[in-house]
Simulated scan of single mutants.
Amino acid sequence: MVGIDFFEWIFGLVITGISFSWQRKRSIFGRGKDELLQLQSLLLSAKDGNSEHDSWKWQWDGNGVFKCCVMAELIDEKLLHNSFCDYETLRNKLVPKKLEIFVWRTVPKRIPTRFELDKKSIDLDSVRCPMCDEDLETVEHDIIFCKFDSEVWARVFNWWKLGNIIDFSIDEVFKDTRPYSSSIHKSVVWQAVKWVSSYFIWKNRNNKVFGKHSSTSVMLFNEIQCKSYEWFTARSKKYKFDWHTWLIDPASCCVSTSTRVGVG
């Protein structure tokens, strides 16, 4: 295509179907005419052995076909592997895309906490946490260590019957699946619950910063229960989520429907 555009610009080549004619603004003599005739002869004799129509090819896969899974692997490898956390994958099909994007931004500390904004020389009244006003508003503090956040996480952990929060970190929020590492079904749902919790903690923080109504820890915890149930139920055909069971014993919902059929 580039070559043809070049020749069209130089010689006025017009292509119609498989034939082409020459529209020149001036006559060509001598050596130039001979070379042009040779070029025209070569173009006329050229045969394309491929009978298929032109199409786009995906260069990152051997067969040239675009696949979402290949794109996901490239994103993980090129963008999400960093010194902060070494992740194999940062996706969970139980949550909306906006939560995945939130995770992708939070891991490399790209959510606009006051500490991160201050590093970019943005003038702020304060760099302290707007929720507790007791420490710098870093990503870790904003999602985990704030007194308000600790109350929310304690309720989430008790809901899942996991007891007290021990050595909880950003890495564990977004990747670690303990204590359900041996159960892929429970680990997927538990990871998604932690993502939902961190998302609503951040959303509640924004509500307070921008003058909207902020929730109490109890209200926020109830919202986490309701929205996680709503999102998971809408996106999962593998798990059977019963509302009453979800509130009382969420881990028991984390058994695939195929497994239940097999057992029954």
Rank of each mutant, 00 (worst) to 15 (best):
S19L: 07
R260I: 07
V196R: 01
V107Q: 01
E172G: 04
L90G: 08
T257G: 02
V65H: 06
S256N: 08
W153T: 00
V156A: 01
G49H: 08
F232P: 06
N164S: 10
E100K: 06
N63T: 01
H244G: 12
W60V: 00
N204G: 10
N92V: 04
G17C: 09
K47M: 14
K208G: 02
I75M: 10
L13C: 05
Q191V: 01
T259L: 13
H213W: 10
H141S: 04
R24F: 14
D5Q: 12
S121W: 09
V139L: 14
V189Q: 03
R105K: 15
V188I: 15
D118F: 07
S256Y: 09
N204R: 08
D249F: 06
Q38L: 14
S252N: 08
E223Q: 11
L42H: 05
P250A: 03
C129N: 05
F200H: 06
T245Y: 13
I166E: 01
F102A: 04
P112E: 08
V193T: 12
L44F: 13
I170N: 04
I224H: 02
F66H: 11
L247Y: 07
P112K: 07
K186D: 05
V188P: 00
E223T: 07
T138C: 06
V255H: 05
E151W: 00
C226V: 03
D76L: 09
A234T: 05
R24E: 11
S252T: 14
T216S: 15
G262W: 13
D249A: 12
V193F: 06
R235T: 03
P108S: 03
T89N: 07
W159K: 02
M1P: 07
W104G: 03
V261S: 10
K147F: 01
F66D: 06
L220F: 01
I170Y: 03
L13N: 00
F148H: 03
S27Q: 14
S228G: 04
K57N: 08
E88A: 12
D123L: 09
L99Q: 04
K240W: 13
K25S: 11
V189R: 01
L74N: 14
L80G: 00
L79N: 02
F29C: 12
N222D: 15
K227W: 06
Q225T: 10
K97Q: 12
S182D: 12
H213D: 11
L247E: 07
N206Q: 15
F20M: 04
K25M: 08
D61Q: 14
S27W: 12
L117A: 05
D118C: 05
